[in-house]
Design a protein around this nucleic acid. Structure first.
Lengths: 241, 241
DNA sequence: CTCCATTTGTGTACGTCGTATCCAGCGAGA
DNA sequence: TCTCGCTGGATACGACGTACACAAATGGAG
């Protein structure tokens, strides 16, 4: 017996490309992905359990394992499923395409907040629809006369900003949800016990000043767009459009 | 009995401020945080288990619960512990401070890659040292004559970029580690079975072109810095420095 | 139509996790 | 000295991911 070595197992996406070898048609990757995403959307990622998924599909707990090697691949399947919603319009210039990437990412993540709590590994997963987004982005950038490395750096910068900003936005949103606050009233935001306590120590005067005088604390869209424009402007400035 | 309602429990940080009420000195938040961070650094976040932590501390599994209400608070403690490493030099201009925030975040996350796989909730946690970083950032920005909302948007943009970029960098890094690849040889990077399969479908010609012609695919620091400069340039451009 | 190899779903079981609950013992103030 | 409150220990429970061996259903070959 060799050192503990995972059997190299054909990539998930390769398997799915072949027409299903023998269809008994109660389960399918599609059905599995849809069900799992449904659970995650409705009750959060923690509710996505192999057992729960099986129940939802009306099937024994181990059944989905025929289509997915484990929970990690299930998450990959979910990511790919949901990335279908992120379509970049064709024929736009680099800036509009990148803006569209940002906003598309934002909307997709707001619809599926659990995306923000996937492990980086799962978010790195090279799924077909994810690859398609990358391809489209790079090809929109291709007309600008940049070298390949710079092109990729632009795409990654926008993607990094969008993901980072949404991780934060979603964290705040889900915190408020769980507090039962329908909307981010400014007052309520300050009333988070943790925040109140920190401020009351008097150690963060600048922050306190912000809390008391800012007027767009709850305008999350404004914040996202403002940041996105920084990134786009910076790209334009550095690269001469 | 009221609706299932968690007892409001005093914020973690408030409790820690009081001098330990009765010291029997075998356990302490400090010791707990250090041990937990040690485990996570050495073996990854999954190895951080309440039981494992207790073992490491030479204590019964339930003992740490006296200092931490559950695993979530343990993670908060870990985050705070590690944020001590992120110190922003004083007296710098806004741009140098933000650059320092970016690089400081990067180095901290490279030292503690598990930061990238914390749930957004845990990353949102308002811990003292995190608050201190925010305070310092905002105060460095304060001299630039920006309104409070814009000031915050600048800080959040840099923070979002740094976090998003590092989530990606760390995911790639840990993937390579787990493949046993010491360094991101370009060839090897292409050899990831998933990637190879996708490329071979011929559906991603632009991406394929990038893979074959790019020369800085493995220069992760260059990529991080380039993206960070986009953000900083964009801020400077949009706000007139 | 029949038979069989292959594929698809089932049943059972194991080890590990987070943590609720109750208990024992120590230290300090009366 | 007694006792109260805090500390850490012991035990236990339910849920999780998944390994493994089995049964049922399928479609092509004869």
């Amino acid at each position: 017996m060799a050192v503990e070595k995972d059997k190299p197992r054909e990539p998930l996406w390769a398997r799915l490309e072949r027409p299903a070898p023998a269809p008994r048609q109660t389960l399918s990757p599609q059905r599995i992905a849809t069900a799992a995403v449904g659970i995650a959307d409705a009750e959060g990622l923690d509710a996505v359990t192999m057992r729960r998924l099986a129940t939802e599909l009306g099937v024994a707990p181990m059944a989905p394992y025929r289509y997915v090697s484990g929970k990690d691949e299930l998450l990959e399947l979910m990511v790919d499923h949901v990335y279908e919603e992120l379509r970049l319009p064709e024929g736009l210039g680099w800036r509009e395409t990148m803006r569209s990437l940002g906003h598309g990412t934002r909307e997709m993540m707001l619809r599926h907040p659990w995306l923000a709590q996937l492990s980086p590994q799962a978010m790195l997963a090279l799924t077909p629809r994810r690859m398609a987004v990358t391809e489209r982005s790079l090809s929109a950038l291709a007309g600008s006369g940049l070298d390949p490395d710079t092109t990729m750096s632009v795409f990654r910068a926008v993607d990094a900003y969008a993901n980072g900003a949404m991780a934060y936005e979603i964290a705040v949103q889900s915190f408020m949800d769980q507090q039962g606050w329908a909307d981010g009233g400014e007052l309520r935001s300050e009333l988070a016990p943790q925040m109140t306590w920190h401020i009351q120590t008097g150690r963060y005067p600048t922050f306190e000043g912000y809390l008391m005088t800012a007027t767009r604390k709850d305008d999350v869209l404004w914040r996202f767009e403002t940041g996105l424009e920084y990134v786009l402007d910076g790209i334009a400035a550095k690269l001469g459009i």
